[in-house]
Amino acid sequence: MSGQVVTYELDGNIAKIGLNRPAKRNALSSALLRQLEEAINRAGEEARVGLLFSHNEHFSGGMDLAEAQSWVTDHSRYLDMRVGTAAKGRPHDHLARGRIPFVAAISGACVGGGLELATSCHVRVGDETSFFALPEGQRGFYIGGGGSVRIARLLGVARMTDMMLTGRVLSAEEGERYNLLQYCVPKGEHIKRATSLAHRIAENAPLVNWAVVHGLPRIQDCSYDDGLFIEGVFSQISMGSESAERIEEFVSGRARPLVKPGRSGDEHGEAPGTQS
């Protein structure tokens, strides 16, 4: 598909990246993936947090199967798209292991490659219309956007195996229960909530955000002792002049307090007397 199918907007410290291929439910064509990768890399240079969303009712219906027909018959192109590009990470690894955290705002279909894309983001907000599936087996191919690693870690191998073998579709409520979503909100409120979270994340020290994005996933691959060692390394790396300034804000009483759940105000603030 020719033309612009990914939008980019800088909103303060937030890079808003929109999937905009409504006639195809944001199917992941080569053009869309290329433009998405460019937008993600630009966000890493210009913003503190990225927001990935859809301009229409569906986040993404997965791979563009009409385009994929040519990959299957043209073996040289098939290898480039399904092996060579995947080995380089495609946009998924740029999301998961780039310079900044990404928040995904999800509605409607989040299927196949779309789910692989969403789970490459670090925080996922879905509205009640969201649904999740991995129908690749029914289409005759295996996933190739890192889902075997990222989705399996969220769902667990048994549940992901069920989805891939049986074609099971998960609702938004099930998606939250099974860890595909961290937030499930009423219809149409996903972008607003995701934007609010993105702005809150952007207030963190950038080096700490980077440490969370890169440290936590790697530590899960380590032994207990190695995990503690790497934690210590990331802890030291993330401490700098900004850390001293923020600690001083807290000690002097100028830091924003947490608000306990159920109270009005910013649920991500800091309660008086909290020491960490």
Rank of each mutant, 00 (worst) to 15 (best):
A255R: 05
N179Y: 12
A158L: 13
A27M: 02
P272L: 13
E9R: 11
R159L: 14
R153Q: 11
S120C: 08
F250E: 13
G232E: 09
G18F: 01
V125N: 05
I100T: 05
K260H: 08
F141H: 01
A47M: 08
S235H: 15
H190R: 11
N20R: 11
S148F: 04
K24H: 11
F141A: 04
G144K: 01
Y78G: 15
W71N: 03
G167N: 01
A152E: 12
A43G: 05
T73R: 09
F141E: 00
S171W: 03
R21D: 13
E57S: 07
L95M: 08
S30Y: 04
T195Y: 01
G62P: 01
H199K: 15
I106R: 01
D226F: 08
K192N: 12
C110L: 04
R153F: 05
F102C: 04
I14Y: 01
P272A: 14
S29W: 00
Y8T: 03
R168L: 10
R218A: 00
G146W: 12
A105N: 02
S243Q: 06
A27V: 02
I247T: 14
G215C: 06
L19E: 03
N209F: 04
R168C: 06
D221M: 14
A244C: 07
I17R: 02
Q275P: 02
N13Y: 07
P217G: 03
H122L: 05
L170F: 15
S70C: 00
N41L: 14
I40M: 06
S130F: 01
P261C: 03
A86V: 08
E189P: 05
E38Q: 15
G89K: 00
L180E: 07
R42T: 09
I237V: 15
N13M: 07
E67S: 08
R124F: 03
R34S: 11
K187V: 10
A15V: 07
T195A: 12
L32C: 05
C222D: 12
G114I: 00
G113C: 01
R34L: 07
G175S: 14
G167A: 08
M160H: 02
S70H: 10
A118F: 03
L19S: 10
G144F: 13
V123L: 15
T274F: 10
Y78P: 05
A202W: 02
A23F: 06
D64I: 02
R48G: 07
G253L: 14
H94K: 09
G126D: 10
V213Y: 00
L19D: 00
H75F: 09
G126L: 14
D64G: 03
G144R: 07
A205V: 13
M160I: 11
R97H: 02
S148Y: 00
G262W: 14
V72S: 02
V169Y: 04
G84D: 13
R218W: 06
V251Q: 12
G253M: 15
H94V: 03
F250N: 06
T73V: 13
A133Y: 00
V111M: 08
G265T: 11
G140S: 10
E231Y: 12
P272I: 12
S2K: 10
S171I: 06
G140T: 09
I14L: 10
G84M: 06
F229C: 13
T85R: 12
H75A: 13
D80F: 00
V213C: 10
A152D: 11
H268F: 15
E67H: 08
A211D: 05
P186K: 11
S196T: 14
A39M: 10
K88L: 14
L19P: 03
E176G: 07
T85I: 00
